[in-house]
Design a binder for these strands. Sequence first.
DNA 1: GAATGCGGGCTGT
DNA 2: ACAGCCCGCATTC
Length: 396
Amino acid sequence: MLKGADQPVMEQEDSASQHGEMTSWDINDIKLPQDVRQIDWFQEWPDSYVKHIYSSEDKNAQRHHSSWAMRNTNNHNSRILKKSCLGVVVCGNDCSTLDGRKIYLRPAICDKARQKQQRKCCPNCNGPLRLLSCRGHGGYPVTNFWRHEGQFIFFQSKGAHDHPRPETKLEAEARRSIQKAQTAFSASSLRLKRIQEIESLTGATPMPEALPLFLSKPDAFVPPADFGGRVSKSPEEPALSGCSGHPPAPRAGEHGGSRGALPWGRSPSLGSVPSTQRPCGGPAVPCTAPSPQRCAHLSTQHVLPLIKGGHGSFGPNTAPSGDGSCGEKSPLTYSSGCLSLPASPGPQGGPCPMARGAQPHRQLPGPSEGDGGQGGHQAGLSYCSNDVLFNLYPLR
DNA sequence: GAATGCGGGCTGT
DNA sequence: ACAGCCCGCATTC
Ligand SMILES: [Zn+2]
Ligand SMILES: [Zn+2]
C-alpha cells in the first residue's frame, strides 16, 4: 500500500514475493520495507529480474546461497553484497551420459580452484572441460544482491541466466568426496596388494588396520553412502517418495546434520572421475564425434543417474518436503530411485517450475503481521503450516 | 582445500 | 559515479 503504483513492473507470477506492493522496493533504496507481511521460502534457482524477501532466520539466505555458481564481487558497498554468476562447466566433447544427460559441472567459486578445475577432465568421457560463462545481464554475468535489513534478508537478481544450471553445491561436494574416496581406494588397494604379497611371502598377516571401508568398486558401481541411501532411503530420510508427510523431525527440521545450514538436497548425480589427473584425453582434438577421448585405462567413470534435487534439494528448509514441494510439480525423481529428469533446465527463462506454487507465502509471526496478513492468506498458511514452522524455527 | 566476505585498486563508459 | 573485475587477506566450513 505504500506505493503500489510507482512500479510499472507487473507482478510476475513466477516469483514469491511479487505481490504488488512488496515489489516496490529496490535493493538500493535507502529504506527497505519493514512492514513485510510475507516472506519467501528460499529460492534455490532465482532467475530473471526477481526480488525476494527472506527471513533473517533462513540459513540459506543468511549464507547468500544459490545453486547457481555465484561468486562474490566487489561493489564497494559493504551494505549490499553483490555476487555474479560464473556460468557452468561443460564437456568440451559435448558428451552425454548413457541416459542422455549432458555434463554440467559447478564452476569452482574460488579463482584458484576454478583454474585447477579447468585442467581436469570430463567425468563422463574424460575429455576436456570448458567453462561456459554467463552473459545473461547485458552480455555480462547475472548479478545477485543481498542485503540484511531488520529481520529480513532482501534479495534481488538482475539478468536471466543464459546457460544450463550447474550442479548444486551438494552435488559438487559429493562428487569431490567420491573422487577422493576413489583415490583413497586405489591407494589402499595398492597397500592391500602389498599386504597380500607380504602375507604370501611370510605367511603372516600384517595388520588389518588399513582396510578402507569404502568398498565401492569401480567396476562394481556401488556408489558411496550417498547414493545407496537414495534409492532405498535411509531410515531417517523419509524418501520424498510419495510426499508422505512432513519433514522428519530428527534430521529434517533445519537438518543439514549439525549446523543445520545446508539443507540442500543431496542428489547423487555424482560421477566418478577418471583415474587421476592426466591430461584430458585430447583437449586439442575435440572429437565432436560420439567417440571422444575415453580414458585409456580403468577410468571408473559413471555419472550416476541424476536425481536432481532441484527444489527438493533444499529439504525442509526451503522446500516443504511435505505437501509443499512434492505436491508441487517437481516430479521429483527422488523416490523413483534413478530416473532421468528433464535433462537440462534449459537456459534462460528456464521455467523454474517449482517456484510459483512452491512458495508458501509465509506470514510473519512477528511484527507487522496484523497489517493485513490475516486477510486471506490463511489458506496458504495452513497449506504448509508445519513446514513453515520448521523453516522459521529450525531445530538447532 | 574451498567457499565466502571484504575491500583496495584499475578500467571502461 | 557506476559497473565489472583482478587480487590478496581473513574467516568459516
Ligand atoms: Zn564429456
Ligand atoms: Zn548465469
